[in-house]
Every structure is written in C-alpha cells, then in structure tokens.
Amino acid sequence: MTLANTSSHRAQDLRLSVLVAQHLRKEFGSVVAVRDVSFTIDGGTTFGLIGPNGAGKTTTMRMLLGILTPDAGTVTWNGERIVGAMRRRFGYLPEERGLYGRMTARDQIRYFARLHGLGERDAAARTGEWIDRLRIGAFAERPCAELSKGNQQKVQVACAAVHAPELLVLDEPFSGLDPINAQMLLGVLSELRARGTTLVLSSHQMWQLEELCGAFCIVADGSNRVAGSLRELREQWPTRVVRVAPVSRAIRRVLESIDGARALDTLVGALQYEVPAATPFPEVLNRLVAVDAVTHFEVVEPSLHDIYLQTVEEYERAAS
C-alpha cells in the first residue's frame, strides 16, 4: 500500500469522526467563563469559534482538548469522552505563544513530536518534513530566542501539528504573521484539512475564517449566540441590503414602500436599504425598472463580519 493510499484511507476515516460539545460550563471562583456552549463539528471540516474578547473562546477550546474539565456538560470525540490519553491525538496552538528560548527549533519540534507519542525516528523524520514545509531550514539549528517573531510562530505551528493530529485547535493562528506567512499558514491548514484533520479556529480576521471554515459558532458572554454554516447563518439572517443605482426620487419611493425597509448611508451613486430577507426581490426589481432606468440592482448577502457585529451588538444591547 502506498503512502498516498494510506493517508487517503486515514483521511476518510477521520471524516467520519465527530466532535460534540454539549452545554459546557466552566467557572473560576466567582467568574463564569463559559455559561452554556454547545456545537457539533464534523470530522475533516474547519470550524470557526468566534466572539469578542473575554467571551469564553479560550476556555471552551481548553475544554475541547481536555486541558480543563467542564463543571457541567460534556465533550466527546467519536462518542468517547475526552480523557488525558486522547489528548496526544490532538494538537493545540494557544493564543499566547511560547517556546524554550535556548532550545533549537529542530529540537523543539522533535520534543513535541515525542510528547505526542511519536517514536524517535518518526519524530525526527516528521520534524524534517515540517521544517522543509515551513521553509525554516536555515534557522532550524538556531535557538528559538534568536528567531524572528514570524519564524517562532512557524515553529509553534509545527509543534502543534507535527504528529498529524486528528483534531487541531488554533487560537488566533494568524496574529503577528505578515501577509506572505499568513498565506503560507492558510495553505498549511488547507493541506491538513485535506488529510482529514478537523480544525477548530478562533480569529478576529473574519475574511480568513470565511475562506477557511465550513461552520461557525459565535460566542458572547460564555454562551452560543448563533451556530451553523455560513449559508445557514445567512438563511437565518432576518434582513438583506439592497443596492440600487441611480439615486432618484422614484427609486427611493419604491424602496421605502417595502414593509420594514430602512435607509442606510448612500453609497457613491447608489441607494442602500436594509429590507426583510423575505422580500420578493424579483417583484421589487420589476417595480424599480417601471419607474426609472435602473443601472444597478444588487441584493447583498450578509458577510460573516456583518453577522458577527450584529449578533454581538444585539446581545450587548439586550444585556445592558
């Protein structure tokens, strides 16, 4: 059996895996870090866990990995509760990064490979592969403290993924990376996903999450606010934005006649209105064409960024 076949079978097996978090709760003294978080992640997919600072994302990630034990609720991987021994099949890139300053990059990656259960030879071979993949061969024998921040981050990514984990949790993986290295990391994550690794990401870079993730969970104040694929989130979204050009009184009158319509700031040469998602858009277009010479008509789907902002703002309004 070739290596390609083996990894292809492994990828298929991993795609059958599933991570289920149910009603997770974690308190630290009088502080409730996570109130009630639930979601399901299919194997081999990429999941975005997003939320404002202090929302409980890092604590949730630590519970997914078995680093912290939930006060209530459960986390299962393929139906089994996450226990200590299972953790070596997972990988984690924490938000706060750290390395042994005096240890060389190669030794560091190999050490983590060994900690994750690889034998001496395997660990050395995989370390070499990752050093090549991340193009840090020129610095591999240097102490990590002497590496640039970007290269240190690459070493940390390698430490987290060197053992080809079944589940890889990355907390703000793109922070501190320049665009070229961010692109390289995107490529690495895509490769891992192709090999069947389930990815859980937290980031404030919404465009990167939108590009990478198949499903999302927005957390605020320790609880799920919305969860699902971007398509599902959009379908649940109650409004759409309509952009119409040119700017004219006739067009404005038609748009304002829609039930629940709300005028937004005017773009250069176009009107923008927020309207209910259930609005019959073909009918609206017909009416617009009938009253003026329409040069542009666009129904804008909400981006992840829009959904995130609105979800968090709505929650904060309700909470205050």
Partner: peptide
C-alpha cells in the same frame, strides 16, 4: 520560566 514564556499551555495540551 515555562509559565511566563507561555510554553506551559502548549505543554499541558500535549502531555499529562
């Protein structure tokens, strides 16, 4: 040192 240079979190996620 492990705690202040933040490698601790990576370590405890890998090993007991």
């Amino acid at each position: 040192e492990e705690k202040t240079n933040r490698i601790a979190e990576l370590l405890v996620s890998s090993v007991d």
